[in-house]
Simulated assay, not measured.
Amino acid sequence: MTSTAACRTRCEQCSGPLPLLARADARFCGATCRKRASRARLAAERRRVEAEQVARIPAELRSRARWVRYSSRKVPLRVDGRFAAVNNPATWSDFAAAAAATCGQGFGYVLAAGDDVTVIDLDDAVENGRVLPWAQRIVGALPATYTERGRSGRGLHLWFRGRVPHGRRVRRGEVKVEVYCDRRYIIVGDRVPGTPLELSDLPEGALEALV
């Protein structure tokens, strides 16, 4: 029986002829097509992962036109690849457009005045897959809410419905907490299993749990 590889005479990427002396298992006509195919596979895998993320993002966030892409350096991007700005709504998009775009590394949500969405960011809160005691104390003092792992896998993002007068930053020993509510974009990570797929109301005086 003749193998498929032995019968292949065309490049998988450009459909051009394979070199006459190409190996029997050759799939591409040269390095250029091989690199293009590799980039296409990586892009397809990224889209697959992002498609899975969609089902793990609250509808409350997906329904708002507050979305951007982001670069490898965490710079916010428009869906066409140009720079975005957290203080310019004209550079943001709806979720469908941001999820479908291929520029950058993924998508993020812009926190904007009037949205009443607050994110509590616990930096370096996870070690070897376990939430550290200081972070667990904060999580336990707040209502269960939509929670994500940060991009690094070591942080936690707690999303709430509500607004604080201003952002806040706490650095004390191993405790590293930041609170955002405006002019900041948050990279969408991976929902922590078992946490709600909705935002809970931020209790009055909740920031006292951070100290």
Rank of each mutant, 00 (worst) to 15 (best):
M1P: 11
T2D: 09
S3V: 03
S3I: 05
A5Q: 13
A6I: 07
R8S: 02
T9F: 06
C11Y: 09
C11H: 06
C11I: 03
E12R: 14
C14L: 04
P17L: 03
L18S: 08
L18D: 04
P19N: 09
L21V: 03
A22P: 11
R23C: 03
D25Q: 10
R27P: 02
R27E: 15
C29N: 05
C33T: 06
R34S: 10
A37I: 03
R39K: 13
A40E: 15
A40S: 14
R41Q: 15
L42M: 07
A43W: 11
A44Q: 15
A44R: 14
A44S: 13
A44W: 12
R48M: 11
V49G: 00
V49R: 11
V49Q: 10
A51Y: 01
Q53L: 07
Q53D: 04
Q53W: 10
V54Q: 14
V54D: 11
V54H: 09
R56H: 02
I57P: 02
A59C: 02
E60Y: 06
R62W: 06
R62L: 08
S63F: 01
R66D: 01
W67T: 00
V68R: 03
V68G: 03
R69W: 14
R69H: 13
S71E: 10
R73A: 05
K74G: 01
P76H: 13
P76N: 08
L77Q: 09
R78E: 07
D80Y: 11
D80L: 07
F83C: 01
A84W: 07
V86L: 02
N87E: 15
N88T: 09
P89T: 04
P89Y: 09
T91K: 10
W92C: 01
S93M: 02
D94Q: 02
F95W: 04
A97D: 12
A97V: 06
A99P: 03
A99L: 04
A99K: 01
A100R: 14
A101L: 03
T102Y: 08
T102N: 14
C103P: 05
G104N: 03
G106T: 00
F107K: 00
Y109W: 07
L111Y: 09
L111R: 05
A112V: 02
A113M: 02
A113K: 09
A113Y: 07
I120N: 08
D121F: 13
D124H: 15
R130I: 07
A135V: 13
Q136W: 14
Q136M: 11
R137I: 02
I138Q: 12
G140F: 04
G140S: 12
T145P: 08
E148V: 01
R151F: 09
R151K: 12
G153E: 06
G153S: 04
R154P: 00
H157C: 01
W159Q: 01
W159A: 00
R161E: 12
G162P: 08
G162H: 12
R163T: 14
R163P: 02
H166W: 12
H166N: 07
G167N: 08
R168M: 14
R168T: 08
R169T: 13
R169P: 00
V170K: 07
R171C: 02
E174F: 12
V179D: 05
D182N: 11
R184G: 01
I187T: 13
G189H: 05
G189P: 07
G189F: 07
D190I: 00
V192P: 03
V192Y: 09
L199C: 06
S200E: 10
L202P: 09
E204W: 10
E208N: 14
